[in-house]
Design a protein around this nucleic acid. Structure first.
Length: 605
DNA sequence: GCCGTTTTCGGCCCGACTGTTTTCAGTCG
């Protein structure tokens, strides 16, 4: 079993244990173990089979947890989880996903109302049964009702990274079959949408020709992780994985691969529009080929490029295929040259063991160097995030001193060898408090290269109040970057209400940058927000907010979103080299004052 | 259930916010 699945079982056990009012520290140890399992680079499945003693070397995994992991490998589950599931219901784990719903409420509803699933909860709310319960009232019921609506809107969709990992595994399996030489994800995954409803995969190769594809289809249908087979056709297999993700795999001959890719990539509106244009030119486009209307003769089909080209268009990057003007641009050869992963020179939002990160300052710098970045900023949390051991003024100053040392050391390494240079900037992610003030002093912030101001709490504030708070924070001249300004957290909860247009305008006029968080599981901007930011003239920075060296890899997902917003290299600040980046971040106030002096000087004389 | 030790048991990131209370439990980050 892969690490993520093992971790999920441990998390489920922790959730159930919490509902059962088990020892909170025991619960935490299950969660810690799950985190350790997920972040280790070791393959636990293989380790458990070959060298089980090595499991104990992982921090957070002791004797009991190692036994649990061995049991998971052997039986696919662990005894405690089974025991708890016999007492409670699996659907309670889903109830926990509702915003505002925790283990105590799940237990309460089960014990008093025998409610164990979302439908049951909804019925209980409608019947007004919740309000008789202790600590429950009209407002709480209303909140849950909204939570249910939000959950239903998003359920069944998966984060881009989860879909991509699943796609890579299936592609690996298919490519191991002799005679299949290309597998490409299509659909919303290929378009880079931040959530994916189901997975479309296209495969081709010599064995995918119409008359000999059957054995390859059988092979696909025998993919071991399949939880349930939905359909098996002549060249198509549909199935569901245990995560609930539905996958459609199509095996297609090479001659029509491009047409199929174009067709299954969508979006629907883009395809409708392309076909209308094809018809005007006397062509008809299907998933098999672009053909002449008059006699059905083949025009193009093997690649997307030849299809778009036959229609007089440049090839359109999948991220742009939303019928948002990309066809017109393609016809007039004015499609933007979209930003690429390789354009990014630095990642300026990351955490270390000083607060809630999992790696040290040095490890983060080494990892960034290995990735070829020319700079990073270490931006640990400030004190208001007490759970992360956030830095107060004093510790922040010590933090800066340590970063300066590492920065010096890494530039010396560069001088004494041929290694590439990396700059390490000192930074902080400060909290925007209730009145818009920050939780560290200006004296300390002034010494930072990168100050990111973020809202971490206060989710239920009215729009006006929340907007005012963020606007006030931007007024602080030391705020260089506005962190996750929308508070939008996909699949988990509603965004907090904020007037983005005003915030972006204020950031643009103050010269502060806005951040796009590349981590698919965190707070970020939508492609609409990103387009708005560009239009407002905002500087944009894309960061991974890495809490672990491996999370730096998430940059590629962030880039997909930037591409969907039609952004180019010139639109994104951290494509600049280190010196230019710092120069273009919001200038420090002392520089602004200097500038003001110079201006006055000119006026007088 | 893990960890570390002042070795075999005691401690385990903590503070803000909300909606219910009328002093606090539950949830969240």
């Amino acid at each position: 079993m892969d690490n993520r699945s093992i971790a999920n079982l441990l998390i489920e056990t922790a959730d159930l244990l919490e509902i059962a009012a088990g020892d909170p520290f025991r619960v935490r140890s299950y969660r810690r173990a799950a985190e350790a399992v997920e972040s280790t680079t070791l393959q636990l499945g293989r380790l458990a089979a070959e060298e089980p003693k090595k499991l104990l070397e992982i921090s957070g995994i002791g004797k009991g947890m190692a036994a649990n992991i061995l049991e998971i490998e052997k039986a696919g589950t662990l005894p405690l989880r089974e025991e708890l599931l016999a007492k409670y219901k699996p659907s309670m784990l889903e109830l926990l996903k509702l915003p505002g719903m925790g283990p105590k409420s799940v237990a309460l509803f089960w014990e008093t109302l025998q409610v164990c699933d979302i439908d049951g909860l909804e019925a209980a709310i409608e019947a007004g049964k919740l309000e008789d319960l202790p600590r429950m009232g009209a407002k709480a019921a209303d909140k849950l009702k909204k939570g249910i609506a939000e959950y239903r809107k998003n359920s069944g969709r998966f984060h881009l990274d989860d879909a991509e990992i699943a796609a890579e595994k299936i592609a690996g399996y298919l490519l191991a079959y002799p005679g299949i030489d290309r597998v490409t994800p299509a659909g919303s995954l290929r378009r880079g949408r931040e959530t994916v409803g189901d997975l479309d995969l296209l495969a081709t190769g010599p064995v995918c020709e119409e008359d000999k594809v059957a054995p390859a289809v059988d092979y696909m249908a025998a993919y071991p992780p399949i939880a349930s087979l939905i359909a098996k056709g002549a060249n198509k297999v549909s199935f569901r994985l245990s995560s609930g993700l539905q996958v459609d795999v199509r095996l297609l001959p090479e001659v029509s691969y491009g047409a199929a890719l174009q067709y299954f990539t969508g979006s629907k509106m883009h395809n409708v529009s392309v076909r209308q244009r094809a018809l005007k030119r006397g062509y008809t486009l299907s998933e098999y080929a672009l053909a002449k209307v008059e006699d059905g003769s083949f025009v193009a089909g093997a690649t997307e490029e030849e299809i778009y080209s036959a229609l007089g268009m440049d090839w359109i990057a999948p991220e742009l295929r939303e019928n948002n003007g990309e066809l017109e641009a393609a016809l007039e050869q004015r499609l933007p040259e979209l930003i690429e992963l390789g354009d990014i020179r630095g990642d300026v939002h990351m955490h270390t063991v000083m607060t809630d990160g999992r790696n040290t300052l040095r490890e983060m710098a080494e990892a960034a160097l290995a990735k070829g970045y020319s700079y990073i900023a270490i931006t640990d949390h400030s004190k208001n995030l007490a759970m992360t051991n956030g830095l107060d003024d004093q510790r922040a100053l010590e933090h800066i001193a340590r970063i300066r040392e590492i920065d010096k050391e890494f530039s010396e390494i560069q001088n004494s060898s041929n290694r590439q240079q990396i700059r390490v900037f000192a930074g902080i992610e400060v909290d925007i408090l209730g009145a818009g003030e920050l939780d560290l002093s200006d004296e300390v912030l002034a010494q930072m290269d990168v100050v990111i101001a973020s809202v971490h709490t206060l989710f239920n504030q009215p729009l006006e109040e929340m907007t005012a708070r963020v606007l006030r924070a931007i007024e602080n001249p030391y705020v260089r970057i506005l962190g996750h300004p929308t508070g939008r957290m996909l699949l988990r909860r509603e965004a907090y209400q904020i007037d983005m247009a005003r915030v972006l305008k204020a950031a643009a006029s103050a010269g502060a940058a806005v951040e796009h968080n590349a981590n698919p599981n965190r707070l970020d901007l939508s492609d609409r927000d990103l387009r708005m930011a560009k239009e407002a003239g905002c500087k944009i920075v894309v960061n991974t907010d890495a809490h672990h060296t491996s999370e730096m890899e998430n940059m590629r997902y962030g880039i997909r979103q930037l591409r969907r917003a039609w952004l180019t290299k010139a639109d994104v600040l951290n494509t600049l080299d280190a010196d230019e980046f710092i120069k273009n971040l919001r200038p420090k106030p002392e520089n602004q004052r200097q500038n003001a002096c110079v201006l006055r000087h000119f006026r007088v004389f």
